[in-house]
């Protein structure tokens, strides 16, 4: 029984990583329809931004975290404002945008290696955050707990923002019918900028977690993002709750299934389930038919 509980707690940690990445992607993709694979690049950049703030500039962790979130959000918005708009304004399709995004990811991941070397940059000032706490016999590090708490707060804020504020409702309206919102005078450009900023701020949180936990490193984001994208599709595009349920499933599956399934089959099995899922229900768990 103890092992089930321990695996469950680890599952919660991993689920939170997918939850945040998937929520970020969902906000961007659901509204803009852009297959923003450079989400993985923002994930990586966030870790290095935090590293620069904490280690090079010596700022305390809380200030660094807040600054790094803001910087990540700005970076995300800039990617949209510069690269993606340049692509789209020249008659580029979404496929072209996807390729450009892939190109950007190559630039980010390798640019970082050129600047910082391929070695992970470990944090020296965060020793106390690696301390291990026990939750009913399941070990959890302070960083993990911190990520879970910040993550829950962020997701709640996101939910309230999307459903209870005027800006959120505007985003929803624009995602369902962009033409109509254009007519009622909602600026799509503004809405898209906001979505990129929110999405990038969300993906920054697991980025920080990875950096603090095992050192800032490049190239770790792609697979996480692809799995998160899968969660978004499984949950149903534009359904935040659907993406959350699917993310929880993926995070839990990776940890709980270890009891029966050899680790090297896990990812393939998840993809296999995904294939069956989109065959049976192409709109996802909570998606409405267009």
């Amino acid at each position: 029984m103890e092992i089930l509980w321990q695996l469950f707690i680890q599952g919660v940690v991993l689920s939170m990583v997918y939850l945040l990445i998937a929520s970020g992607f969902s906000v961007i993709y659901g509204t803009t329809g852009h297959f923003h694979i450079s989400h993985a690049g923002v994930f990586t950049l966030a870790g290095y931004v935090l590293y620069l703030l904490m280690e090079s500039m010596g700022l305390p962790i809380w200030i660094s975290l807040i600054l790094a979130i803001v910087i990540s959000a700005i970076l995300g918005a800039l990617i949209y404002l510069t690269l993606y708009r340049a692509v789209l304004s020249r008659n580029g399709t979404h496929l072209v945008l996807f390729i450009a995004s892939l190109g950007l990811l190559t630039v980010i991941d390798n640019g970082i290696v050129a600047i910082f070397s391929p070695d992970p940059q470990t944090f020296t000032t965060s020793v106390e955050f690696n301390k291990v706490l026990m939750i009913l016999g399941a070990p959890v590090t302070v960083i993990q707990l911190g990520m879970i708490i910040i993550g829950i707060v962020a997701l709640l804020l996101l939910y309230v923002f999307m459903n209870r504020t005027k800006a959120g409702r505007m985003i929803k309206a624009a995602s369902v019918n962009p033409d109509l919102s254009q007519i009622v005078g909602i600026s799509l450009k503004k809405i898209h900028v906001i979505c990129y900023a929110i999405g990038s701020a969300l993906v920054a949180i697991p980025g920080f977690y990875f950096a603090l936990d095992t050192g800032a490193n490049s190239g770790k984001g792609v697979e996480l993002v692809i799995l998160a994208v899968m969660a978004v599709i499984m949950g149903g595009i534009r359904s935040l709750v659907g993406a959350w349920i699917a993310s929880l499933f993926i995070g839990m599956f990776y940890n709980m299934s270890i009891l029966w399934i050899p680790p090297h089959w896990q990812t393939s099995i998840i993809f296999f389930l995904f294939l069956i899922m989109i065959m049976v229900r192409p709109t996802g768990l909570f998606g409405q038919r267009a």
Binding site: L83, A86, V87, R90, N91, G92, T93, V96, L97, I99, A100, L102, G103, L104, L105, T106, V107, N110, G111, A114
Partner: peptide
């Protein structure tokens, strides 16, 4: 990096 930039450049200028 150069490779990535080339692809980005193409996608912008001649998709």
């Amino acid at each position: 990096v150069f490779f990535g930039l080339l692809i980005i450049g193409f996608m912008i200028l001649r998709p």
